Amino acid sequence: NNDALSPAIRRLLAEHNLDASAIKGTGVGGRLTREDVEKHLAKA
């Protein structure tokens, strides 16, 4: 659900052409954090 993404996370996802649903969020309520996105990028 993109409504739960902060603007910074949306921008980071867009810059790397990532789909938020492909990344498991570890923030409050399962929200994506910058660390989640960076860890996903490091794996790729």
Rank of each mutant, 00 (worst) to 15 (best):
V37F: 04
A42V: 08
L5Q: 07
N1S: 14
V28A: 13
G27K: 01
P7N: 11
G27Q: 02
E35R: 11
S6M: 06
A20M: 06
T26I: 03
A4Q: 13
I9Y: 04
P7T: 10
A44G: 12
I9K: 01
L18P: 00
A42K: 12
R34P: 08
V37L: 07
G25F: 02
K39G: 09
T26A: 03
E15Q: 15
L12G: 01
D3L: 09
T33G: 01
L41D: 02
N17L: 05
G30Q: 05
V37Y: 03
L13A: 01
D3H: 12
H16V: 03
N17K: 09
I9E: 03
A20D: 04
R10K: 14
L32G: 00
N17T: 04
R10P: 02
I23N: 00
E15G: 05
E38N: 07
A4N: 13
I9W: 06
L13G: 00
R10N: 10
A44N: 14
G25E: 01
P7Y: 06
G25W: 02
G27N: 02
A22P: 02
H16L: 09
V37Q: 00
A8V: 08
A44S: 12
D36K: 00
L41I: 15
A8G: 07
E15H: 12
R10Q: 14
N17I: 03
A44Q: 14
A14P: 00
R11C: 06
S21R: 10
D36Q: 01
K39V: 08
P7Q: 12
L5R: 03
K24S: 08
I9P: 00
N2L: 14
N2P: 13
K39R: 15
E15S: 08
L41Q: 02
G29A: 07
G25T: 04
S6Y: 05
R31G: 07
A44T: 13
G29E: 07
N2T: 14
I23D: 00
L32S: 00
G25H: 06
V28S: 08
A22Y: 07
G30K: 03
K24E: 10
H16D: 00
E38V: 11
N17D: 09
K43W: 12
S21A: 12
V37R: 00
I23S: 01
T26F: 03
P7R: 09
N2D: 15
R10E: 15
G25I: 04
N2H: 13
L18F: 04
I23Q: 02
D19M: 09
L41N: 01
I9S: 01
E15N: 08
G27H: 02
K24A: 10
S21K: 11
L13C: 04
L5Y: 06
I9R: 01
A44K: 13
R11T: 12
A14S: 08
L18V: 09
G25M: 03
A14E: 14
S21E: 09
S21N: 12
A8P: 06
L41W: 04
K24R: 13
V28R: 11
R34E: 10
L5V: 09
K24D: 06
E35H: 09
A8Q: 09
E15L: 15
G30P: 01
K39L: 14
S21D: 13
L18W: 03
A22N: 11
D36I: 01
A22F: 08
R10A: 11
A42P: 04
N1R: 03
R34D: 08
D36H: 01
A44Y: 14
L32P: 05
R34F: 15
A22S: 13
N1V: 12
T33S: 04
G30R: 03
A42F: 08
D3Q: 12
G25N: 02
T33L: 07
A14R: 13
A20T: 05
A42W: 08
L18N: 01
G30M: 03
L41Y: 03
N1P: 13
R11P: 05
I9A: 03
R34H: 09
L41E: 01
L5S: 04
N2I: 15
E38S: 06
E15K: 15
T26S: 10
D3P: 11
S6V: 05
V37W: 02
R34V: 15
V37H: 00
E35F: 10
A42D: 07
K24L: 12
A8E: 15
L5G: 04
L12T: 03
A44L: 15
D36M: 01
G29L: 07
I23Y: 01
S6F: 05
R11W: 15
R31F: 05
D19V: 11
G25Y: 02
T26Q: 04
T33A: 02
N2Y: 06
D19Y: 06
S6H: 10
D36R: 00
G29H: 07
A42S: 10
V28K: 12
A44F: 15
R34A: 10
D19S: 12
L32M: 05
V37M: 03
N2F: 06
E15F: 14
L12V: 06
R34T: 10
G29W: 04
L18G: 02
S21P: 03
L12R: 04
R34S: 07
K43R: 11
V37N: 00
L41V: 10
E38Q: 09
D19H: 10
L13T: 01
G27S: 03
S6L: 07
T26P: 01
S6D: 15
A22D: 14
L41G: 01
S21T: 12
V37S: 00
R11G: 09
T33M: 05
R34W: 15
S6I: 05
K39Q: 12
E35A: 12
E35N: 08
K43G: 12
A44R: 09
N2A: 14
P7M: 10
A8H: 10
G30S: 04
L18E: 02
P7S: 10
A4K: 12
D19A: 09
A8N: 07
K39A: 14
K43I: 13
A20Y: 06
N17F: 07
A42E: 11
T26G: 03
L5H: 07
D3E: 12
L32N: 00
N17E: 05
G27Y: 01
R11N: 15
A22T: 11
A22E: 14
V37E: 00
A14D: 10
E15T: 10
S6Q: 06
E35W: 10
A22C: 04
V28M: 12
S21C: 05
L32A: 03
K24P: 09
K43F: 12
V28T: 10
H16P: 00
E35T: 09
E15D: 09
R11V: 14
N2S: 13
N17A: 08
A4E: 15
G27F: 02
H16N: 07
S6T: 12
E38T: 08
R31I: 11
T26E: 02
L5P: 06
A8K: 06
E38L: 15
R31H: 08
R34G: 05
N17Q: 10
G27P: 01
L13Q: 00
A8Y: 11
A44I: 15
A14W: 12
K39S: 11
G27W: 02
G25D: 01
L32Q: 01
T33I: 04
G29S: 06
L5A: 06
N1L: 14
A44D: 11
E35V: 07
I23T: 01
K39D: 10
K43H: 14
I9H: 03
G27C: 00
D36E: 02
D36A: 01
A4T: 12
T26K: 03
V28N: 08
L32R: 02
I23W: 05
S6E: 15
L18R: 00
K43T: 13
I9Q: 03
A44E: 11
D36L: 01
I23R: 00
L18D: 01
E35P: 05
I9T: 04
P7L: 12
T33K: 04
A4M: 13
D36W: 01
R11Q: 15
V28Y: 10
L41F: 05
A20E: 08
R34C: 04
K24Y: 07
E35M: 08
L13E: 00
L41P: 00
A4Y: 15
G27R: 01
S6R: 05
A8S: 10
L13P: 00
N17H: 11
E38G: 05
P7G: 08
L5E: 06
I9G: 01
K43N: 14
K43D: 13
L13K: 00
G29P: 02
L32V: 12
L5F: 07
L18Q: 03
E38D: 07
I23V: 08
H40C: 04
T26L: 03
H16M: 06
V28G: 08
A20L: 08
D19L: 12
R31L: 11
L5D: 06
K39T: 10
R31N: 08
N2Q: 13
D19E: 10
R11I: 12
L32F: 03
H16T: 03
S21M: 09
S6K: 04
G25L: 03
T33Q: 04
V37P: 00
R11H: 15
K24M: 12
S21H: 09
A22H: 10
D36T: 00
K24V: 13
R34N: 07
P7A: 14
P7K: 09
V28L: 13
L18I: 13
R10H: 10
E38H: 09
L41S: 02
